[in-house]
Design a protein around this nucleic acid. Structure first.
Lengths: 116, 116
DNA sequence: TTGATGTTTCCATATTTCTAAAAATATGGA
DNA sequence: TCCATATTTTTAGAAATATGGAAACATCAA
């Protein structure tokens, strides 16, 4: 991932409503949620929601597909992964005291995974 | 870590110069770098650098200590760790396909660590 | 086609952020 | 004390972002 995209992604998440949108979509994986449903659940006017979703989309953090009248949004978990990897990359080699505990805490949450 | 601090942290990193500052400081761990040296290396006026460092400080991403006339800044790796954990937390339980590969890539970079 | 529903675009306003010069503050040496 | 160096604070204009109502656009059902 390029620097400009990392900045765009952090920028997208550095806003209360958008962070809430993203986290909600992460929890709704893999089904996703319609734009209107997001607006309702987070008590945000549709125009405002639409603008925020556009920001998250441009950053690549969410993807959307039309389903009838609705447009379903989903979190792009792979993108989040890449952004995190970018941050960690720099200290990875020289500072295992960071990556170590972080890796451990991630391992701890992958109970019985067969690596599909 | 609280939501407001996460937003503050992402916001701090969502800016070209500040992201460069943080990454540079990560690479300079554990020695750190003086404010003036940072300004010189990144070709940024000192007033501008000072403002950016204040933002990173408020977010908790860097810490500083005075040393003679200089003020030495260091990356707060622990804080970065916490911010990442916040992001991953939501999908941790339900979506191991995210944490798994991420954890693996982190494990891969902690070669011979005794967990000080 | 008409009407109902879901979403985005347009627009104006309010707010925040970026930038860097100038002035102020802190430190240490002579 | 006075001076040089290092950094921060103040300030303010320009640019970017947030917000939400109204209108436009898209889809489906009758």
């Amino acid at each position: 991932m390029e620097t400009s995209n990392v900045i765009e992604s952090f920028s997208a998440l550095a806003q209360e409503t958008r962070l809430a949108i993203f986290r909600l979509l992460v929890r709704q994986e893999p089904d996703g949620l319609a734009a209107g449903e997001l607006a309702r659940q987070l008590s945000v006017p549709h125009a405002t929601m639409s603008a925020h979703l556009a920001v998250l989309s441009r950053a690549g953090l969410v993807v959307s597909r039309r389903q009838g009248r609705s447009i379903i949004y989903r979190a792009n978990l792979n993108h989040m992964q890449e952004a995190i990897r970018f941050l960690v990359r720099d200290c990875c080699a020289g500072h295992p005291e960071v990556c170590g505990p972080l890796a451990e805490s991630l391992i701890g949450c992958t109970p019985n995974q067969d690596r599909k």
